[in-house]
Design a protein around this nucleic acid. Structure first.
Lengths: 254, 254
DNA sequence: CCGAAACAACTGGTCTGACCAGTACACTTG
DNA sequence: CAAGTGTACTGGTCAGACCAGTTGTTTCGG
């Protein structure tokens, strides 16, 4: 693999990349913390010995990565930001929409996530979160005759609360990203047919069952329900050849 | 929430952002496809009616998002890239390393991922992939007396192959990111104590069992094994208050 | 004495125009 | 026709300039 000299391939490092690297490192090692301020661009060009254009290019990529924020006129300079899931969200969306990821993979991913988060939510939910879920389910029920827009909003609220109640941000983020990507894909595919009445009733019934399991703190059942429901919902959109993995995930042990 | 006029808050859009937006859109809608070329920066400044510095800032954020690549001297202009998981990978790493995510969450996430990917791998693995896994496990076995570096490399290889065999890139990416973040965290915590001999033997035994289940195409068992092993491995590093969720995930349905 | 308006000194956003070191491709030349 | 040479581009960087916006201070009017 590698030569005995230990030499490795190099690629030219552009000035702005080196700057990005340094600042990224400083943030990663906590030398710079959220709320801290970077020196002004004009100062930075001094400390890095480059032109302002180069400093700015570096700041732009940091900004696009959600690490800093520049505001014109602010004499305190660019602000170091708290890490946020926004860029992860965007990256996942892009990847899915690019077609690199198959629908079946996305559904498998979501089945797993949804199942696990329901299991965890049953265990970790606070009473307030339980009430939020109840409210969301009731909102679904009462809006079932009305517009499908407010219905699906309530549906989303319910699942969002479940994710929150799982107390696992990673699942929350990934689940949300997967959900968003999934509805995008499905909307593209079926020309955004609005939820039919029958479908709405089904969704409501599903969510209601899950809610009951979470209320009863039956994590295993909540997870199992969530998995089967997601599979049921998306299963038929998946090409037959890609369905076998899904079936397996539905019933993880025996 | 919103006024009856439908007015919404605005925030100033900087010129380079508008350019990024347009190009991103063109890629998302397949007007630009991987392999296609953007006009040169000098042309772009004409079509967008901005200076080259602005065009360049836009290209830098596109480039940092993995959407395009610029090479000096290439007369065909910046290239549209195939979407790659790299930026997702980076985003997840950043999020995890920022400390926004607790260790217990990370472990829960990985338990779930590892379990699911083993289940899927048991179903989807090709004969070649099975052989790769066998080779990796055997490499672990033979290197157990030698350095711990080559041992853990073989260990990583084994799990990488499993992910690949799951034929689910999303899990592969997320799993890899979670694994990387996890070893980082653990290394920080225990001053990178190298694997002891006993630990190596344990890991080997675990991987071997998983391998057998995958070979036998017993997805449920492979997943179950993977979950329990990950829990066993990381469980005691987690604060007691955060362990209950883990236990639940270990045995999803009774 | 105090509040409000004007100011000054910064900030980031953008532009112009320039130079260099690469690359690709056509054009010579043997 | 092959091999070497040129040239016209490319992106990477720099310098210096202007504008619009923010902030903190200073001044001025009550």
């Amino acid at each position: 693999m590698t030569d005995k000299t230990g030499f490795v391939a190099v690629k030219p490092v552009r000035a702005y990349e080196a700057i990005v690297e340094q600042i990224e490192q400083a943030i990663a090692t906590r030398q710079l913390n959220p709320g801290d301020r970077l020196p002004s661009e004009r100062d930075l060009m001094g400390t890095f010995a480059v032109s302002r254009a180069t400093v700015r290019e570096a700041l732009r990529v940091l900004e696009s990565g959600g690490l800093v924020r520049s505001r014109p006129g602010d004499p305190r300079g660019p602000e170091i930001l708290q890490a946020s899931p926004a860029t992860l969200h965007k990256a996942m969306n892009r990847l899915v929409r690019s077609g690199t990821i198959k629908l079946s993979e996305l559904v498998e991913f979501r089945v797993m996530l949804e199942g696990a988060s329901c299991t965890l939510a049953a265990e970790h939910r606070t009473p307030e979160q339980l009430e939020e879920m109840r409210a969301a389910v009731e909102a679904m029920e009462s809006s079932i005759a009305g517009g499908s827009a407010v219905f699906s909003q309530a549906d989303v609220d319910f699942h969002a609360t479940v994710w929150e109640a799982s107390h696992n941000q990673l699942m929350q983020i990934c689940g949300d990203a997967a959900r968003g990507a999934l509805v995008d894909l499905v909307n593209d595919r079926i020309d955004s047919a609005p939820d039919s009445g029958a479908q709405m009733k089904l969704s409501l019934a599903h969510d209601y069952e899950i809610f009951n399991a979470i209320e009863a703190q039956d994590g295993a059942r909540a997870g199992q329900l969530a998995r089967t429901f997601v599979i049921e919902y998306y299963g038929e959109m998946i090409e037959h050849g890609d369905r076998n993995g899904l079936a397996l995930l539905g019933v993880p042990s025996e």
